[in-house]
């Protein structure tokens, strides 16, 4: 019955449909796999510039997949929607959290890169960086999942959070360097999760002819 319609549920359904295509999952999966590429490149006899170039290239590829997917796969099937003030506010909060997280990441990277010798020795144990990483990832993805009501981000955040400490644990206990495989495995889980959503989305939504309007 029309008079019993729940407007909040209607808005929520419309909002959640934005994440049905799995493209954000694919993007985040490729980004994590870029870490694996980075780890692999570290073992290759190539110049630093080449290494950075390839690493950035993979990240650009992830962005291209996201934007091209939205443009050529999602839009013809699902259309376009602009949400109201409340959703915009929530998106701005997530952007702020991302910005703060990036600043924290840069700060940690700068500290570890600039401190050498005695200075590096002054830094607390080997668990500090992994701990900051875990807290940062859980905060970013957790808040993102909450404010965007994008529940899969909790799983993605967990996978992002565990890769670094897992790498340290394996290096410490088994004395083997499996960083590349750890990043690859975690990234693949997210990537395949996204692909599964994308396949279902494409199967359930046929592209519509926009020339009819």
């Amino acid at each position: 019955m029309s008079q019993t319609i729940d407007l909040k549920a209607l808005e929520k359904k419309a909002w959640k449909s934005v994440f049905q295509d799995g493209l954000w999952d694919i993007y985040l999966g490729i980004l994590l796999m870029a870490f694996a590429v980075g780890a692999w490149l570290d073992r290759q006899p190539i110049s630093e510039n080449m290494r950075v170039g390839i690493y950035i290239g993979v990240q650009i590829l992830a962005m291209i997949v996201l934007f091209a997917g939205k443009r050529f796969v999602t839009m013809p099937r699902m259309g376009t929607v602009k949400f109201g003030v409340e959703r915009k506010k929530r998106r701005h909060i997530v952007q702020l959290v991302l910005f703060i997280s990036a600043l924290v990441g840069l700060g940690v990277w700068f500290l570890s890169a600039t401190l050498s010798g005695e200075g590096r020795g002054a830094m607390p144990g080997r668990w500090v960086f992994p701990l900051i990483w875990v807290l940062n990832m859980l905060m970013v993805f957790g808040l993102g999942a909450y404010f965007l009501e994008y529940e899969r981000l909790y799983v993605i955040g967990f996978l992002y959070a565990i890769v670094i400490p897992l790498d340290v644990i394996v290096k410490t206990t088994a004395k083997v360097d499996l960083d590349m495989y750890i990043f690859l495995a975690a990234g693949s889980i997210i990537l395949f999760m996204g692909i599964a959503y994308l396949v279902r989305f494409v199967r359930d939504h046929k592209p519509l002819n926009l020339n009819q309007g």
């Binding site: 407007l7 909040k8 209607l10 808005e11 419309a14 839009m75 013809p76 099937r77 699902m78 259309g79 376009t80 929607v81 602009k82 949400f83 109201g84 519509l208 926009l210 309007g213």
Partner: peptide, 10 residues
Amino acid sequence: YVVESADFIF
């Protein structure tokens, strides 16, 4: 009413 705007397909 619950969104700002949407297209036909959506």
